[in-house]
Nucleic acid binder design. Structure first.
Length: 257
DNA sequence: ATGGCGTGGTAGCCACGA
């Protein structure tokens, strides 16, 4: 089973690239973030034409998450239950794979802007409520994969310049602690588990020739619970889409189970 | 390094991303 996550920074702009990538990579599941479109605009027909089913939790201009799947998508959940939030940042569904039933959770964690902004506290609050919901979700779903744009670089090796970024948003202590709380529920950062000392990034700033100079961060992650991490055969970051014309600033992260 | 780019909404350049 092959699963990927990709923040596309507008599905309206990136649809043709997503179609091309699906044809080439042939994932069983592809989780998208920042679709930036209302549900009515989501291209279900184009996705169906490739042999996939799709669900979308979107809104105009900002945010928006989707799951594209070879499998039937069951027991769909939009947003974090009990958390009042106008921003569409989470969608979950259950799939029946050759490795059994798996709960698939697609997240677009708030960016946080800067550590002294209201958006930073919204980010921490969002993560707190997400973690609480997840803990409860684990009671009824033995196997869970959480994938998406976490907007957190878990360790210094996930940041191109830890000194310059020290105490900044994406790397700050409180964000890393919030990420660790999810891990502590019984999850593994699959890319890091499979590649313990590999320096690779999933996002590069559009400005300052960030990609060419490899000034990146590893902020897009696929977390699996302990049972599944033992079955993961590979995890990789596909830099190819970031090289294309008019790319997203993020690139896909992949696992095979 | 506090800008530079990119996207979307709106009709002014502004909000937001990371």
């Amino acid at each position: 089973m092959k699963l990927a996550t990709w923040n596309v920074n507008s599905l309206t702009v990136r649809l043709s690239q997503v179609e091309e990538w699906i044809k080439k990579a042939k994932p069983d599941l592809l989780l998208l973030q920042e679709t930036k479109q209302e549900n009515i605009k989501f291209p279900h027909e184009a996705i169906n034409a490739l042999g996939y089913k799709s669900i979308h939790n979107g809104q105009k201009t900002y945010n928006g998450v989707a799951i594209i799947s070879k499998y039937e998508l069951l027991d769909i959940q939009n947003n974090i239950p009990g958390f009042e939030d106008g921003q569409k940042r989470m969608i979950a569904a259950t799939v029946n794979t050759n490795h059994g039933k798996i709960r698939i959770v697609c997240v677009y964690v708030p960016n946080g802007q800067s550590v002294d902004s209201d958006k930073y506290f919204y980010k921490l609050d969002w993560l707190k409520h997400f973690t609480l919901w997840l803990k409860n979700e684990m009671l009824s779903h033995p196997d869970i994969i959480i994938a998406g744009d976490f907007n957190i670089a878990p360790q210094d090796i996930d940041c191109h310049d830890p000194e310059a970024w020290k105490n900044n948003v994406l790397v700050s202590k409180r964000e890393r602690e919030a990420f660790q709380k999810i891990i502590d529920l019984g999850f593994s950062d699959s890319f890091r588990a499979m590649n313990p000392s590999e320096i690779q990034y999933s996002w590069w700033d559009y400005r300052m020739a960030g990609f060419r100079r490899n000034l990146g961060m590893r902020i897009d992650h696929i977390l699996t619970n302990k049972n599944l991490i033992n079955k993961v055969t590979m995890s990789a970051i596909d830099k190819e889409p970031r090289k294309s014309e008019r790319p997203s600033d993020h690139t896909p992260v992949i696992i095979e189970i």
